[in-house]
Design a protein around this nucleic acid. Structure first.
Length: 925
DNA sequence: TGTCCCTGCAA
DNA sequence: TATTGCAGGGACA
């Protein structure tokens, strides 16, 4: 949605004049207010509004003075030092590309009010940039076809973007603000009000009566001194209300659409900045073009590259404050720590980061803590540095004890970058961080999941800033030293910057999120609540029977050896069975077997499909296939999992990546517990090693066919909806439709084919893929697909709509509004576009399923918190949740969890949850 | 030592 | 020429 920024120029000028020291340039001209305003405007430009206006008061009387001659009568004349800055300010504002508006007869407020409502009505999101609280009366929430109206105060960073936010700040709704202002009066503007009535009283009355008129009507009933004051003021109140009302119907020579931001006039800016001594701004002008060039390098494509960064955003101008080193303090004594804690508490919101000696949050030791509540200012508290000659640091326990009340205070909001890591560190030190409210990694993920979300990338992309690389302070590769061996001065540069940058990133990212309420909701209602849930699951871990795995390793080893001997015999020479390259030479060159499958690089493939294809021509391929299956299980699972047991807990703790999969799914690593085998007998045995401790059981609950159900919901196809509503076996029902059978006539083979079709549809399959999967001809596969679509026309239409939508807007959405941007859908080559279309088909289903289970996890976690530790969530595998449960609590859990999972979304088909109980994961599944 | 390639496990 | 991931071993610079 386009955005219009309306800047209340007069209010900023006054604020900056009084807030900043009386600076002058080399010629002695006053520049303080100018400096403040220019910085504010450059910050505004960084957010790249589509339209912008800088609104100031014209000279001469306004309608308010005609209405009430005493209006603003006691306002002192503008100081000369300020007056002198007005003209240069206008020149800079012009040169920056803003339109300046000055309307005689009305105040700047009325011009802003009029444009704001016009803009919102035209579907433009409007940001009013002001330090004047009276504008709260204009706040509007977005409606269909209409933009929102929000307030920001760039000086303080505060933002009022919803009715709720206004309520929180003033205790009344935006539409009650004028009534409140009338009751309170305003001594600065000389608006009369009720004596002794401040915001609290006004809000109380309005909460009771709703409107000023109702308060007036009920005035006789108000008791006490304040009641007398109210009755005395009655006559004045309607006038006060009128004076406080910002007009929204002023005839203007412009409309929002005529306020497009102009190209900035570099030459004039250079001259003006030089004249007034704005060196940082000047540097930005000169450095800007170089930074742009750097940023326009293509982003690193990831994975298949079917989607990646969407429209390459132009590099933001580098933050000038970043070109100078930030004001970073090393905190080495208790007094400074106390001072910082006081500051952070006062700020109410700060960025937090920890430094440790390991990447594994369940093993890492705390080395230092950094925080920042103001851009450019940050502190680093070293507490675990350890090298010859290290300065005296704060004692770790006393530092933690000092920080604990702040960190555990839910009323003080913390901002982090991948804060789940820091939550683990503090939890292991006995501190439960509360008020973990913002995570820049997740903000970035929700805004555009296919970009990178590490801090270095974010800083580069959003701030045009190169962070101090970890390698620069700790070295890299074999020479890397643990962070506790890094010199404290270097550590401060690195760690304090992390907190500083996190805070700045949040400023940008939260503003971007505000612009899209659906994304804001995904972030606020799904991702942020999930952070603590995932941290708990990771901390719980799962019990693994190492002895069982060792027995399996021995068994696998024995069978691998036999296969190896057999293979050597068949090949007539020894070779490395693990080497695709050697295998390729042996099979296709020496033995002359046909190479029917190619790798993506064009080499003859030795993968399963290729070996199966030649298994009837030679004995060797079958032996290799057997060997491979065994080797995979041993190297990836039975050997590795025992090594992953955390000695401190005796359990295996995976790590869930919340910003891992572009569709919104979680990913798991170290170890990956989302790909434990199940399909073969040998593989399934590994699940027997995932066990419950004595007195407990494992309970597994999984969604039945959730993605197909989502397809039914999204497509609205009558046949599919009916099948699910009737509780049918969906693959059997599909087979009956496609093959023209009655349900009971469907053969196992037909059901298998139907299942392949159903899954293929979820992945955007074509006839070629289905043919290969089923081992049938392309023509036959095409017929199946055609028949499927004729039986389920809603699905066909939905797929076409989705492609269309993806092509037109560049992204697709889940039921809950999560987006996946598809860069290559518009500008890729043929293959890339086709790939992007398949991803577009898949993402709404996969992503909605991810949204649903995430919601269920948050809900269930809340429920479990009240169950006294009788059960814990220990695994998530995309459509399945696994719990470790006291034996006596199993029944209760089975009553509650499937119900809550099924209730996590209201679709046009029921969500069905299956569950199982056992001593190990295999039994429970 | 770091990186790419091939392979294969899960939903 | 079927989606999303993680990870192992080999090969090579």
């Amino acid at each position: 949605m386009p955005r219009l920024v309306l800047i209340d120029g007069s209010s900023y000028l006054f604020r900056a004049f009084h807030a900043l020291p009386p600076l002058t340039n080399a010629d002695g001209e006053p520049t303080g207010a100018l400096f403040g305003v220019v910085n504010m405007l450059r910050a505004t430009l960084k957010e790249r509004p589509d339209y912008a206006a800088y609104v100031v008061d014209a000279s001469g009387p306004t309608f308010r003075e005609q209405m009430y001659p005493l209006y603003k009568a006691n306002r002192p004349p503008m100081p000369d030092d300020l007056r002198a800055q007005v003209e240069p300010m206008c020149r800079i504002v012009e040169a920056l590309g803003f339109t300046i508006l000055r309307e005689p007869g009305v105040e700047a407020d009325d011009v802003i009010g009029t444009l704001a409502l016009q803009g919102a009505a035209e579907g433009i999101d409007v940001t009013i940039s002001t330090s004047d609280k009276d504008f709260a009366q204009l706040v509007r929430e977005p409606a269909p076809g209409q933009g929102l109206v929000e307030l920001v105060n760039t000086m303080t960073g505060s933002r009022l973007d919803s009715i709720e936010a206004v309520m929180a700040k003033f205790g009344v709704r935006p539409d009650q603000i004028v009534d409140m202002l009338a009751l309170m009066g305003d001594s600065v503007d000389n608006i009369p009000g009720v004596a002794k009535c401040g915001p609290k009283t006004a809000a109380k009355w309005l909460a009771e009566h709703g409107t000023l008129d109702a308060v007036i009507a009920a005035a006789d009933a108000v008791k006490g001194k304040i009641g007398e004051s109210l009755r005395e003021a009655l006559g004045q109140l309607p006038l006060s209300r009128q004076l406080a009302t910002i007009r929204t119907d002023v005839p203007l020579p412009v409309t929002p659409r005529t306020l497009a931001l102009r190209e900035r006039d570099i030459e004039s800016l250079r001259e003006l900045y030089a004249r007034y001594g704005f060196n940082q701004a000047l540097k930005e002008l000169d450095g800007g073009s170089a930074a742009d060039a750097v940023e326009k390098e293509p982003g690193r494509a990831r994975g298949s590259g079917r989607y990646a960064a969407p429209v390459a955003e132009d590099a933001p101008p580098p933050d000038p404050a970043l070109s100078a080193p930030g004001e970073y303090e090393t905190v080495l004594d208790a007094d400074r720590l106390a001072a910082w804690i006081g500051m952070l508490r006062e700020a109410g919101c700060f960025a937090l980061d920890t430094e440790t000696d390991s990447l594994d949050p369940l093993r890492a030791n705390l080395v230092g803590i950094s925080f920042s509540a103001e851009a450019g200012r940050a502190a680093y508290v070293p507490i675990g540095h350890d090298y010859p000659g290290v300065p005296t640091q704060l004692d770790r326990q006393s530092a933690l004890d000092a920080l604990r009340p702040l960190l555990e205070d839910a009323g003080v909001r913390k901002i982090g970058q991948h804060g789940k890591y820091d939550l683990h560190i503090f939890r292991r030190l006995g501190i439960e961080v509360r008020g973990y409210a913002e995570d820049t990694m997740l903000e970035s993920f929700v805004l555009n999941s296919s970009q990178r979300h590490d801090m270095d990338s974010l800083a580069k992309r959003l701030l045009g800033y190169d962070t101090v690389a970890y390698e620069a302070v700790a070295g890299k590769g074999a020479k890397q030293i643990p962070f506790n061996a890094v010199a404290i001065d270097d550590a401060t540069r690195y760690a304090a910057e992390d907190a500083d940058i996190t805070l700045r990133l949040h400023g940008q990212l939260s503003a971007q999120l505000q612009a899209t309420p659906s994304l804001q909701a995904v972030y606020r209602e799904i991702e942020m609540p999930l952070v603590q849930v995932l941290a708990r699951i990771e901390a719980n871990g799962v019990m693994v029977d190492a002895d069982e795995l060792r027995r399996q390793t021995a068994d696998l080893s024995r069978r691998m050896l036999a296969a190896q001997q057999k293979a050597t015999e068949l090949a007539g020479r020894s070779f490395n069975l693990d080497s695709p390259k050697q295998l390729q030479a042996l099979l296709f060159d020496e033995l002359g077997l046909p190479a029917l499958v190619k790798t993506p690089k064009g080499q003859p493939s030795t993968n399963e499909e290729a070996l199966e294809a030649i298994a009837d021509q030679h004995e060797l391929p079958r032996v290799i296939l057997d060997y491979r299956g065994l080797a995979k299980l041993r190297s990836t699972y039975t050997e590795k999992l025992p090594e992953m047991i955390n000695p401190a807990t005796g359990r295996v703790h995976t790590s869930y990546h919340q910003a891992g999969a572009a569709t919104g799914r979680l990913a798991s690593s170290d170890p990956n517990l989302q790909n434990i085998p199940i399909r073969t007998e040998d593989g399934r045995r590994i699940r027997k090693a995932f066990v419950a401790p004595p007195g407990r059981r494992l309970v597994a609950c999984d969604y039945s066919q959730i993605e197909l159900r989502i397809m039914a919901h999204l497509s609205g196809d009558a046949g599919l909806l009916e099948a699910f509503s009737a509780g049918a076996d969906i693959h059997r029902a599909t087979a009956a439709e496609v093959f023209g059978r009655r349900l009971e006539e469907v053969t196992p083979n037909e059901r298998r084919a139907a299942k392949a079709i159903n899954f293929g549809l979820i992945y955007g399959m074509g006839a070629f893929g289905l043919a290969r999967n089923l081992g049938i001809g392309r023509g036959e596969a095409q017929e199946y697909i055609a028949t499927y679509f004729s039986r389920y026309p809603g699905v066909r239409d939905y797929m076409e709509r989705t492609r269309q939508q993806a092509r037109e807007q560049g992204y697709v959405e889940t039921v809950f509004g999560r987006r996946l941007y598809l860069e290559y859908i518009q500008r890729g080559n043929q293959a890339q576009r086709a790939g992007a279309e398949r991803a577009a088909i898949n993402a709404p289903m996969q992503g909605t399923a991810a949204d649903i289970i995430k919601r269920a996890m948050v809900d269930i976690d809340g429920w479990l918190a009240g169950q006294g530790g009788a059960a814990q969530m220990i695994l998530q595998v995309h459509d399945e949740l696994v719990f470790e449960v006291d034996e006596g609590f199993v029944e209760a859990l089975l009553r509650e969890v499937p119900r809550r999972m099924a209730a996590a979304a209201e679709l046009r088909v029921p969500l069905v949850v299956d569950s199982g109980v056992g001593a190990d994961w295999d039994e429970a599944h």
